[in-house]
Amino acid sequence: MTDPTQDPRFLQDPYPTYAAMRSACPVQSVATGSGGRTGYLVTGYAEAREALAHPGLSKDTGVFFSGKESPRRLHPAVAHTMLAADPPRHTRLRRLVTAAFTTGAVTELRPFIARVTGELLDRWPVGERLDFMDALAVPLPVLVICELLGVPEDHRSDVRRWSGELFASGRPGLADAASHALAGHMTRLIAAKRLSPGHSLLDRLVAARDGDDRLSEEELVSFAVLLFVAGHETTTGLLGNALLALLRQPAQLDRLRRNADEVPAALDELLRFDSPVSTATFRFTTEAVTLGATEIPAGVPVLVALGAANRDPERFPSPDVLDLDRDAAAHLSFGHGIHRCVGAPLARAEAEIALRAVLTRFPGIRLAAPPEGLERRHTRLVRGLAALPVLV
Rank of each mutant, 00 (worst) to 15 (best):
T360V: 10
R283P: 07
H331D: 15
A114C: 09
A19V: 07
T43V: 11
H90Y: 05
A177Q: 14
L143Q: 10
D158V: 01
R94H: 08
F223R: 00
R209G: 06
S275Q: 09
L324Y: 14
V116H: 04
D274K: 15
Y40G: 01
H331E: 15
V321I: 15
E69N: 05
T102N: 03
V27C: 03
L385A: 13
A208Q: 12
L332I: 15
P111I: 06
R248L: 12
A224I: 00
A344E: 12
I190L: 07
A135W: 02
W124H: 02
S278Q: 12
R257H: 09
P250E: 08
R204G: 08
A230P: 01
R255F: 05
T236D: 07
G67R: 06
P14N: 08
A192K: 00
R383S: 13
F316W: 08
H180N: 04
V302E: 14
H155A: 14
V263I: 11
P371T: 05
L359T: 03
Y45S: 01
R214M: 13
P264F: 07
V97G: 00
E147L: 00
K68T: 06
L322R: 04
D274V: 14
R257Y: 12
M1W: 01
R380V: 15
A46H: 09
R255T: 10
